[in-house]
Amino acid sequence: MWTALLSKELRECGLFAGLALLAQMQLLGSGMDLPLIPLLSSGRGTEIPFHAKRAFDVMSDREIMFITIAIISAIVIGLNQTLMESWRQTSLFLLHRPMPRSQIFLCKLAAGGLILLGTSALPLLIYCLWAATPGTHASPFFWSMTEPWWHSVLVAFACYLGAFLTGIRPANWIGSRTWPLIAATGMALGLKLAPVWTAVVYAGLVALIACLVISILNTTRHREYP
């Protein structure tokens, strides 16, 4: 049943996941001089793929674009997974299946996580491997330089969970409904950009993600499905 539910979720998010993947491939492909659509790319020029520092003022345009695409796609996927189900009233169909409610929603979150890995982490990994290959660019490369980019994937996942919680939360849109999304995005970006140790950033993001998952499971247990 996990396979069936995962396939359903992946299929339902296919369009947005595809668009997000294309956007990241165009962005990071341009950074490798291999853009999907050359007309939309100004070329890599003398750009340095990864920097040694992680302060906001030295974030490259490409890194800013990468995190923007990752966050937007995460929010769209989180809302799509929840709002579509309640608008079509298919939650009544789904939640009556003989599977614990917590497992149904964990499966949805797993599908969302897989989509984010596929649309953000996978293109980033390819970009990192390209940058790690000698002779591809005239700048030093250490894997530690890629760390801020990986934080971005975690930030996107926190935003996804915030959007998911907003989607299932029984509150007024013009009211408190969007608070989880706003709070998750603000806190995750704050952690990423704050001048603190890397370990603190990771610990903070993991704690935020854990809080959001617990809150999601708690909401699904107590909310009404009208």
Binding site: K8, R88, F93, P100
Partner: peptide, 20 residues
Amino acid sequence: SPKTRSRIAYMAEGHPLYSW
């Protein structure tokens, strides 16, 4: 329990199905 739920069928008002 899921086992008991599997012995119960529920048809919601409007018969919601996945349109795709």
